[in-house]
């Protein structure tokens, strides 16, 4: 007697969940429920493309970095970000392969607005201190998020994140080095840094996403926790970030632009002023301050270089000499 297809699927699903619960890792060619694959594709392709798009705001300051040492360091740092994009896109590409899709499709999805890049990369940069602040505090937020997934159930993602985390140690220190130099410098340099913090603070809070789905309509945090892709919710990560970074920010003599910010010892959590979640929603529709400019630059360079990809893509055979 044949078992119904649905029952077979149920058994597979139960076995899959048992593996997840036991802390086992899933490989690309293992059976996986569709919502697991979809969640991974959405998460990892967005993560990957965000690294690629995230190179742009920092790139604005790379050639302008003040000294040769800083030029070299920020170049190495942005290079790492592009490298992280490479690693993550490769993981995403393997996940979309069963649908006959490639990197080309991901790039087209980005241009069409179907694939979003992270909300923190839609903001303007104004001065060198912004580059320092991005390296210090935006990277800090990114490290909090990424290390939270280091034990991710999907093995190829975990492997990529392991490489990324190792490089992030340099990033964390690189960003702090710039911030420390400015914070311990002239009045002008200090002001520059404080001004950058004033402008970026809401973006840093928004970084982790809305605390609940009610605020913005949708959130994929439940499914990623259920499948052990990450450990903490958006709000828990934000709280963790504040715990790690508020003392460092204040230690540098900077003022966080939120008078209500405080640690509540009873609730064991930070009380802070909510950022403008409507602006967050706008950004997720690519309507942020720099969304369109950065997409345009990416599209321009992509189109401009199409001939290179075509030349090499169509002629793979003749080169094997």
């Amino acid at each position: 007697m044949a078992v119904s297809v649905r029952d077979a699927e149920k058994v597979k699903y139960r076995e899959f969940m048992e593996r997840i619960e036991a802390g086992e890792k899933i490989e690309a060619d293992d059976w996986m429920p569709d919502d697991y694959r979809q969640a991974l594709i959405k998460l990892i392709s967005m993560h990957g493309i965000s690294e690629i798009m995230g190179a742009l705001p920092e790139k604005e300051w790379t050639p302008k970095a003040p000294t040769l040492y800083r030029k070299l360091a920020i170049m190495a740092k942005v290079q790492d970000e592009v490298g992280h994009g490479q690693l993550l896109l490769r993981v995403a590409e393997d996940l979309i392969k069963p649908y006959g899709k490639t990197r080309e499709d991901l790039i087209q999805d980005l241009f069409a607005g179907r694939l979003k890049f992270h909300n923190v990369f839609h903001w303007k940069t104004k001065s060198w201190a912004d580059a320092g602040l991005i390296g210090w505090l935006v990277d800090g937020a990114a490290i909090i998020t990424q290390t939270n997934m280091l034990d991710c159930s999907y093995a190829p993602y975990a492997r990529a994140l392991k490489r990324i985390a190792a490089e992030e140690v340099f990033h964390a220190q690189h960003g702090e080095a710039i911030a420390v130099a400015l914070a311990t410098g002239t009045e002008e340099q200090k002001e520059m840094l404080q001004d950058a913090l004033n402008r970026w603070w809401p973006a840093l809070l928004m970084f982790f996403g809305p605390p609940t789905a009610e605020l913005t309509g949708s959130s994929k945090q439940e499914i990623t926790i259920k499948y052990k892709i990450r450990k903490n919710t958006n709000e828990e990560l934000r709280q963790f970030y504040l715990t790690k970074y508020v003392p460092r920010i204040q230690g540098l003599g900077l003022t966080i632009p939120d008078e209500t910010l405080r640690w509540d010892d009873e609730k064991k959590e930070w009380i802070y002023k909510q950022p403008d979640w409507n602006l967050f929603l706008k950004i997720t529709r690519n309507e942020g301050p720099m969304s369109q400019e950065r997409l345009r630059l990416r599209r321009l360079s992509y189109e401009n270089n199409a001939w290179v990809r075509e030349a090499l893509g169509l002629n793979t055979k003749i080169f094997a000499s």
């Binding site: 490290i143 909090i144 290390t147 939270n148 280091l150 992030e168 140690v169 828990e236 963790f240």
Partner: peptide, 24 residues
């Protein structure tokens, strides 16, 4: 520099320890 401010260094040990996530 951070020691003077009672803050630790964000070295490999510290950053990899973040993989445990937020523990209250």
């Amino acid at each position: 520099f951070w020691r003077k401010l009672d803050q630790g260094m964000l070295d490999e040990k510290e950053i990899l320890s973040w993989s445990k996530g937020r523990v209250v």
